[in-house]
Simulated assay, not measured.
Amino acid sequence: MGRGLTRFVEADQPVKHLGGFDHALVHCPRCDGKAISRAGRLTCGSCAYTSELHRKPVKEAPFQSVMCPDCNRHIGRYREDPRLLRLRCRGCGWTKAPAAKPPWTAPKRTRRTGLWLETDFRGRTLWARNEQHLEFLERYVAAGVRETGPFNSTIASRLPAWIKSGKNRDDLLRALAKLRARLR
């Protein structure tokens, strides 16, 4: 420890897990400026853009009445997709076996805003949620002695090996300084 490196004690850190940070700095979807995402709401200071990030609650599907195709008799009422159910008419005995698996639907694409404090580091993404997270990373990387807890439940224990490695310390500190410059 002759280089004047500091000591990092995980127990002294104010935030123990990544969800403990109250906000994230992200790119504004309208002007690509710095915006704040807090409690499901995105707010941009430069263009005054605001948006609710929570999805609207999905309304429960109404009951669907199913009629027999042969005798036009009422078979039942179902909430689920009738193609997935075994159907049987009590009047004429008509039956229909369920489909092998649910019909495939393409996943919905959601537009996700990128983090403001994000950079490339040797083909990997180095990122921080906000100023407090960036300060945490700077303290951790700069430390020569790192005291962490015994369990894999805190931020420091979940960091990737390339951040924990001492051989990347100087380059990581330079990359974190670039992220610090983006805050201004």
Rank of each mutant, 00 (worst) to 15 (best):
D70Q: 12
A128E: 05
G33E: 01
R124E: 15
G123K: 03
S37L: 15
R169K: 14
D12K: 14
A39G: 01
C92T: 09
K101R: 15
G2W: 11
A39T: 02
D32Y: 11
T6S: 15
T6D: 06
R112N: 06
D120T: 11
A48D: 06
G144W: 09
P98M: 08
K34Y: 08
G19R: 10
R122L: 15
W94Q: 04
A128R: 04
R86I: 04
G114Q: 10
P57R: 09
L172F: 13
L84A: 08
G4Y: 11
D22N: 10
G45D: 10
E131R: 10
A156F: 15
G20S: 09
T95C: 04
H54V: 04
V26L: 09
L183V: 04
L53F: 02
F21A: 01
Y140E: 01
A161S: 13
S157T: 10
D170W: 09
E138K: 05
R79H: 07
K108H: 03
R139P: 00
K108L: 02
L25F: 13
A48W: 09
G20V: 14
L115H: 04
L159M: 10
L42N: 00
L5D: 10
L5G: 02
E80R: 08
C71I: 09
A161H: 13
R109C: 00
W104A: 03
G4Q: 05
P14M: 02
A181D: 13
I163F: 14
D171T: 03
